[in-house]
Design a protein around this nucleic acid. Structure first.
Lengths: 252, 252
DNA sequence: CCCACTGTTCCACAATGTGGAACAGATGCC
DNA sequence: GGCATCTGTTCCACATTGTGGAACAGTGGG
């Protein structure tokens, strides 16, 4: 086998543990390696946190480091679990639906949504993609994206989704500048008549925007003009909390 | 540093990539290793799928293998994303809420739930724990658990949650035997008056039960006696699909 | 008490990983 | 166009590291 033998062997041990916890001799059998080799690799992997040894047992299992690295490898997957309780808190506070989405090309792909259980509520877009320029999440994601990503998004004409959709590139650029400055975005019946929304960005520890949290509701009741600022602050704060949680899940 | 040096270095490279993709020289800087050492480790990690090289670029990023290992390290986290669309399909079909839970000691911890949007619907238990013996998920998880786990669960007396809760250990053991045989469980107003549910098990590729999917509804309309068998089959089929998806997400 | 396993540790040895150097290619500047 | 400065890749002499068989202590079952 090519490459660094010890690294190959270490991953062989990790793969053997993905079918379930095991002891040194069992792993030696599964990987066809001598027990002393397995013991030494396990000791190193335990130090790294990639493997953990059960208490009251000499059984080994996969450890937190792999979850942390995986979270970094695929922000969208882990972020659903991390953000879920925060979305729930937001829903409890504001009594409107909250969700989370990521940028995919020129659209927002919705990863998750928590419903407020209101009798009149909006359709759940989880698993679907909406043009970025007509939703608050999309504006947030574009505003905090790299210049290259923004240039790519602005390269083609914008489609209107309804009467109030903003499609003029100059107006959108101005808008993105103010979103970047404010740290949040509101859209008022720009994706569809009767739907308003507000969103804020979630950053990874390196400082790049990776997702956006939004709250939306029917225009006739959302937002209550007296609560608009409080709603905005709550969404911004929730997104910041999720950013921190993500950072926490990456630190050893 | 103790342990196998090459393995330590390989994980140092992986950790440096968790803050964002980078090239050989950048990683050498981040890890304080010579470029040739980093190049050799990267080559091995690419072969393993732990790192992938971007097309049209010599930038390296974390790869699928870490996601696969992480899924094995923490079945509960990944399973929420995988099962979500399947729960949605079940809800669309049956028009009742569906959820997923895992065994935690003698209780079921609910990871996720999809609501049917019915005007009369049950409370969402996501994030909460219920005694295993009073819910269909709990009976399923215990029925397919190891003898040790079952013995541990049966070691202490069972608490009734309402008038129809089954708490006699002998009756519960008999029940678990038939659940294991049938591949599903029904509970009729055993957790609370007015709530019925049905559950089926999700297995990991090694064949161990790791979660259960359930559908529940108000007893006055769920289940419709004419549809009970169809409902059961739908739940069992959905759980089997999720099991297969999990297997697929672990295979390279 | 004995046997059969387990995980851990030791250490002689040689195979592997090291890392500086050289090289080819790309990019930017003058 | 030429040069400088980076990049990633490859080579290879060398010595350090990882190897793996053996020995040992501990545990559980008969």
């Amino acid at each position: 086998m090519s490459g660094v033998q010890s690294v190959n062997r270490a991953f062989s041990v990790l793969r053997s543990l993905s079918t379930g916890p095991a002891g040194v001799s069992e792993i030696a059998e599964r990987t066809d390696l001598p027990k002393s080799t397995v013991a030494r690799l396990l000791s190193t992997l335990v130090d790294l946190g990639a493997v953990e040894q059960s208490e009251n047992s000499s059984s080994y299992g996969l450890g937190e480091t792999l979850i942390e690295l995986s979270a970094a490898a695929s922000p969208g997957r882990n972020i659903v679990s991390i953000s879920r309780p925060h979305l729930q808190d937001l829903v409890d506070l504001l009594e409107e639906d909250a969700g989370i989405g990521v940028l995919e090309g020129r659209g927002v792909y919705y990863l998750d949504q928590v419903n407020a259980g209101q009798e009149v509520q909006l359709r759940d877009w989880t698993g679907e993609t909406v043009d970025a320029h007509v939703v608050s999440s999309g504006l947030v994601l574009l505003a905090f994206s790299s210049d290259e990503e923004q240039a790519a998004a602005l390269a083609d004409p914008f489609e209107p989704w309804c009467e109030r959709s903003v499609t003029d590139p100059v107006a959108i650029i101005r808008r993105l500048e103010s979103v970047r400055r404010d740290g949040f975005a509101w859209t008022m019946e720009e994706m569809a008549e009767g739907i308003n929304s507000v969103a804020a960005p979630i950053f990874n520890p390196a400082g790049s925007v990776i997702a956006a949290i939004h709250v939306h509701g029917p225009a006739y009741r959302f937002p209550d003009p007296d609560r608009r600022d409080a709603i905005t602050r709550a969404v911004v704060r929730t997104a910041a909390r999720v950013s921190k949680r993500l950072a926490g899940s990456l630190q050893p």
